[in-house]
Design a protein around this nucleic acid. Structure first.
Lengths: 223, 223
DNA sequence: ACCAATAGTGCCACTCAGTGGCAAAAACCT
DNA sequence: AGGTTTTTGCCACTGAGTGGCACTATTGGT
């Protein structure tokens, strides 16, 4: 008479097992690709290392790029979720988005999330197709967030491009913050990433008014 | 005694021939993919239609996506070129970037550039891998523009994220403008695109201060 | 007009990402 | 235990992209 788990929750054995192979695929992929390069290792090799069929890989991930992007995607998923839950505190939309993203980063409690993101971003920097995949995922996140915003917030006109631009600014700032965070020495964690994010966020308003000052033209003059 | 074309310029016969097959590939690709879908037509079919070997295709374009993106890429290349040539008129960086982009659009004099871009963008909207490719190209453009800006303009600190954010904003605004331009009726031309761009550019400053107003919470309340 | 150098092309075989179908196995629920 | 469902493995297949080599066309010099 095995205990029925109708209501008492807890993920089923099946689900845990699936999660475990998923995690194994992500971890091994990051190791393997970091070691031999994204193009230097084939999917067959990865699947052999994890002892899983290629078919199973594609039931977990949409593409070879996808598995590497998983850590970053977790963060963006949490961000969208935060947008869904939080109520804006009477400030500007941009501040609301920033708070939501910081909250999302704060939810990435998995111990080796930072190091995985770092490996992932470094790979993306070297592999065009992976970077493209990441960009496209950001774009999908923007669209999904946009519909959430339109559902939960009140805007004057439905065609206003400003909410969308605000999301683009947020994503750009985040990418920028990650870029510098990845290069930081001593493998910093979530906290340091949050600091980088706040620093870039603080620079946003000044972006609009930044003057364009040409370098002394004479300096380049001949003779 | 064939005329030697040492100095008298003009593209050589070889170059013109190459250009012609390149144009043929772009035009036929847009037709074919629009008709049967990006994934519905294979490269072999395209090559057969243009009477060119697949090998030749890949000498002209880096990927299947690349050929479709060519028209948009032309515009961004002109933009980078404008950044190189123009001198900022004492305004803000963002205005300088906007002027440069409008100038680039103005240089797209090829008669069927607008319709090609339209087809291209519509395909990208339906094909994730193509959209990703386009995004990645925008990112490459940003990086290239950034180094041009750092060379030609004077910024206080080299690590300042604001120039980069400004470029991100420009690209986001441009994508947004194109999105609505593509959906316009009656197949408008460059002029209409410039108008859309100006409209979105005008909305940029307001993006920073756009308030986040929650929809009446009671509306969603149960009972 | 002819020739040597060079750029561009076609063809062929190959690797590898990604997909569909079906049968085997594992986990689930009485 | 037994019947159901979910997950996996295997196999064959399509199609993108690459490398190599021989072939042709263009070019510039003589």
């Amino acid at each position: 008479m095995t205990a029925t788990r109708n209501l008492d929750a807890g993920p089923s054995l099946r689900e845990r097992k699936k999660l475990r192979t998923r995690e194994a695929l992500i971890g091994t992929a990051l190791e393997l690709f970091t070691e031999r390069g994204f193009d230097g290792a084939t999917l067959d090799e990865l699947c052999e290392a994890v002892e899983v069929s290629k078919r199973t890989f594609f039931r977990n991930f949409a593409s070879k790029e996808d598995v590497v992007m998983a850590p970053t995607q977790d963060m963006w998923a949490a961000f969208v979720d935060e947008l869904e839950r939080r109520t804006p505190g009477g400030d500007t939309l941009l501040e609301f988005l920033q708070e939501s993203l910081l909250a999302a980063v704060d939810r990435m409690t998995d111990e080796d999330w930072p190091s995985r993101v770092r490996l992932s971003r470094r790979l993306a920097a070297k592999t065009p197709s992976m970077d493209a995949h990441g960009l496209h995922f950001c774009d999908r996140t923007i669209r999904s967030s946009l519909s959430t915003l339109h559902r939960r917030l009140a805007f004057d006109e439905p065609q206003d491009p400003r909410p969308r631009l605000a999301l683009d600014v947020l994503v750009a700032a985040t990418r920028r913050a990650m870029e510098t965070w990845v290069e930081l020495p001593r493998e910093p964690g979530r906290k340091a990433l949050a600091d980088e994010l706040r620093a870039v966020f603080a620079a946003i308003p000044g972006t609009m008014t930044l003057p364009a000052v040409p370098r002394e033209a004479v300096a380049g003059q001949i003779r």
